[in-house]
Computed example of a mutant assay.
Amino acid sequence: MNPKIQSISISQSSPLTVLDIGFVSPLATGWKETCAAIKAGYDAFVYPHNSAYSSIYPIARVPFDETIRGFTRLAHLLRLAQENLDKKYGSMPVLLAMPETSRGGLISETATHDALFDAIATLPAFHGKFLRDQITCFYQGRTSFAHQLHKAHEILLTGDYEQVMIMSVDSLLFPQTLNAMLADHWDCDPILNKQRLLTNDNGDEHTDGFIPAEAAGIVVVGLAENHSPAIQIDGIGFGDEPAPLLSKNICKGDGLAKAIRTACSQAGHSLKDYPVRIASVSGEQYFFQEATLAQERNISTKTAHQPLWHPASGIGETGAAVGISMLAMAIDSFQQGYAPGDKAICHLSSDNSDRAAFTLTYKH
């Protein structure tokens, strides 16, 4: 479980604003292209070649050099995301989210950090951008982006910086990770006897699962008061779920409900004021049910329509990178005019107890 986060009233102390964004996904190299493909109904799901599971388990792989593997591949995904940024940037505080170390195939925070940083350091695109002791790493999984926003806000309020760079990269396609997922101890959870991966095997289908994928994103943020903001992040909330995915207890949505309530309160709104929700759900019914329970516990009056969007429907389960994909989906919907309003709430749930939410407002 993650350490307790002391929520700050981001709206009262100055909202964050998004200054730039870059993203690469299995659908496209570019956040606008990825969002356009999702909106058009495309997905990036394929079946791996030359595998015993090639006709059973779909995956979503970023379409570039397949010979680049492991942490070197993650570094190159970040390079592609950097190339999608509108501007070039010098050195600034960098907050990097990477795969949870509890995931199959990964050893420790130190080993994961060193392996990824060493891979990044070999790429000319990142030379001079940050030093090893000037980077803060996050390992909370899907909720990492909210923790990064919280830390960025703290840095911008208390430091001498006007910008902070948030980087997220993840892949569930490491051979070690896939082997662990396909092993008996992961394929069927020892507590719930629950299979985690989506399968399609000629009648022996398992629909209560996710499609493993990979993605990378970079977001540059600043304080709204120092810029001319179009997108404001005006609320961030956290919560702890007492009955997470691997618990024998029944989830009532307590942790996510608290995170949503806190984020909405900071922004000066209630959940019913948000015409759309964007979620980190990627296929497993547990998280869809949790999202419904959290909504019901935060809305006292009936709402006519509040759709739930989830980028995983097009790009698969991207772990720590999902937060930036949700942000990209919100920004694209605002800019392209298909958002049902000028506000959105995003909520994230990790496999453990960590829950988070953040709110967005579009300034026309």
Rank of each mutant, 00 (worst) to 15 (best):
Arg196Asn: 14
Val276Pro: 10
Ser270Asp: 12
Asp184Glu: 12
Glu214Trp: 01
Glu241Phe: 10
Asp273Asn: 09
Tyr274Met: 10
Glu205Tyr: 11
Val276Asp: 12
Ala216Asn: 01
Val219Asp: 03
Phe287Gln: 07
Val276Asn: 08
Ala224Gln: 03
Leu245Asp: 10
Gly268Ala: 03
Leu246Thr: 13
Leu178Ala: 04
Ile211Asn: 00
Asp273Glu: 10
Ile211Thr: 00
Ala243Gly: 06
Asn179Leu: 14
Lys248Gln: 13
Asn179Thr: 07
Asp204Tyr: 15
Ile250Ala: 08
Ala259Glu: 01
Leu173Ser: 09
Ala279Trp: 10
Val281Ile: 09
His227Pro: 13
Pro244Glu: 01
Val281Phe: 05
Leu173Asn: 03
Gly255Ala: 00
Ser270Thr: 13
Asp189Trp: 14
Gly239Cys: 01
Thr199Ser: 06
Met167Asp: 04
Gln289Asp: 13
Ser168Ile: 03
Ser247Trp: 01
Asn226Arg: 10
Leu223Asp: 01
Ile236Asp: 02
Thr177Cys: 09
Thr177Ser: 08
Arg277Trp: 11
Leu245Trp: 09
Ala230Gln: 15
Gly203Tyr: 02
Pro190Gln: 00
Thr199Tyr: 07
Val219Trp: 07
Val221Ile: 01
Asp204Gly: 11
Ser265Gly: 14
Thr177Trp: 06
Asp273Leu: 11
Asp234Ser: 09
Ile211Met: 02
Ala259Gly: 03
Met181Thr: 08
Tyr274Pro: 04
Asn202Thr: 08
Tyr286Asn: 06
Asn226Phe: 13
Ala213Met: 00
Ser168Cys: 07
Gln285Pro: 14
Asp234Met: 06
Lys258Thr: 08
Cys264Pro: 02
Asp201Cys: 10
Thr177Asp: 06
Val169Tyr: 09
Leu197Ser: 03
Phe174His: 05
Phe288Ser: 15
Asp254Trp: 06
Ile211Tyr: 00
Thr262Leu: 11
Gln232Ser: 13
Ser280Trp: 09
Ser282Arg: 07
Asp204Lys: 12
Ile250Gln: 13
Asp170Ile: 09
Ser270Gln: 13
Ile218Ala: 04
Ala267His: 05
Cys251Ser: 06
Asp189Asn: 05
Ile278His: 06
Leu246Glu: 15
Ser270Asn: 13
Ala216His: 00
Lys272Val: 15
Leu223Tyr: 04
Leu223Gln: 03
Glu205Val: 09
Cys188Ser: 15
Phe287Trp: 08
Cys264Tyr: 04
Cys188Ala: 15
His185Ser: 12
Lys194Cys: 14
Ala224Leu: 05
Lys194His: 14
Phe238Tyr: 02
Phe287Asn: 04
Lys258Pro: 05
Leu271Asp: 05
Ile260Asn: 00
Thr207Val: 11
Gly268Asp: 05
Trp186Tyr: 14
Leu223Phe: 07
Gly268Thr: 01
His227Arg: 06
Val221Arg: 02
Leu256Tyr: 12
Gly253Asp: 01
Ile233Asp: 01
Gln266Pro: 06
Pro242Ala: 06
Met167Ser: 08
Val220Leu: 05
Thr207Phe: 15
